[in-house]
Design a protein around this nucleic acid. Structure first.
Lengths: 205, 205
DNA sequence: CTCACAATGTGACAGAAATCACAGGATTGC
DNA sequence: GCAATCCTGTGATTTCTGTCACATTGTGAG
């Protein structure tokens, strides 16, 4: 797989170093890539597929933070990697996913020597930070109906398709809500002609 | 003011450069340091006082994200500064506050040449990222009573005192709630002997 | 002291969302 | 085809929170 196309900004020398030291790894759908409290040994660049980053609490509740797609990197793993600390979040593969694992030890060196890497890291921080702020915005200022609409929009944006293949229960989990509430809100959206509901699939109009 | 003591990790050469290029500035209580949508020209290191970082929405609602005290820096301004972008948050001085403004142009140079600066930036990112995750945790998984308790605890931790000098209205604003709700919850906490209520002041036990 | 105003206390009510209970419909495995 | 299971729809009820209305109390200016 020609992963360089995903990171056109990297200079060739940097690419060489990464190729020499990084490990490519495949995760199956649903596989856990990083778990809360786990010790981080490497930073992940996503090559293919999609990773879901979410927060879990003690009582089994979960809460979606954001998705990572090809060409993106996990900011949390970067930060943790650099400081050799544990993560506070969980990452699972939403689809079959290919990632490039860059060992912690390399991070400092890359940061110091390759401007394009440094820019990439900064950009990643910035992006994730913004997403977290958006998430906070959503839960702090918006009701469940608006949050649901935002969720659906984000889904179709990241996937490119105009359908979402998941059950009401899964959506409820992502929003830390309950199935009944989501079902009812979706029904209302259907009545407003915003979506069309099918089994395990929602068509956005 | 001898600000170097706040940043003991900085090497002397770095301190010199900062002293030569940075501007020290004083903000009065309540003064706005950074406003949503404002263009960022410098990164702020807090020397003295306290800065409140919060999110505002269109309808005048606000929502506290975190505080910055002496020795800390604004992660948002760092990220924005590096990328010369606008901020999505607002910062105001909670008390009379002294900050050191480091111009954007210097950021790249410092990052590349001074390991201690680079470490500091990374640490700042990590810290703010964690705080945002904590905030998300709170609003996603906890009811207002628990969020209030957390808020009070954080206040006494950052200030060092065991009293909080603000009105119920101010607290309600920080939590994006309403005064009546906060008043009632505080009353309940008083009945449980967790706090003692006074006018414009809460004593935590 | 008195007035004005800010902060607080409280009751009543409304709406959002969680929870419980249960009914069908769709799929899957056998 | 049939049973078991998963997904969806819907009503009833409860809890939490926000909102409105208004009373009370503390404080500072004059």
């Amino acid at each position: 797989m020609d992963w360089k196309k995903l990171f056109p900004q990297f200079e060739s020398e940097l690419i060489e170093i990464i190729e020499k030291n990084a490990v490519q790894k495949r995760f199956e759908t649903g596989e856990v890539i990083m778990r809360t409290g786990q010790y981080i040994k490497s930073t992940a660049l996503v090559l293919e597929g999609q990773i879901k980053i979410y927060r879990e609490n003690q009582d089994g509740g979960e809460f979606l933070m954001y998705y990572l797609g090809p060409g993106q990197a996990c900011a949390v793993s970067m930060i943790c990697a650099i400081q050799s600390e544990t993560s506070e979040i969980t990452a699972i593969a939403e689809e079959e996913t290919e990632v490039l694992l860059i060992p912690v030890q390399l991070m400092d060196e890359l940061m110091n020597q390759y401007k394009s890497w440094y820019q990439f890291v900064i950009q990643t921080y910035r992006g994730r930070f913004d997403e977290l702020i958006t998430v906070i915005d959503n839960i702090a200022f918006h009701n469940m109906d608006e949050r649901l609409e935002f969720y659906l929009k984000r889904c179709i944006n990241t996937s490119g398709k105009n359908t979402i293949e998941s059950s009401h229960q899964q959506i409820a989990d992502d929003l830390n809500s309950s199935r009944e509430v989501i079902s009812r809100l979706l029904k209302k959206m259907e009545q407003r002609n915003l979506v069309k509901l099918h089994r395990n699939m929602i068509e956005v109009i």
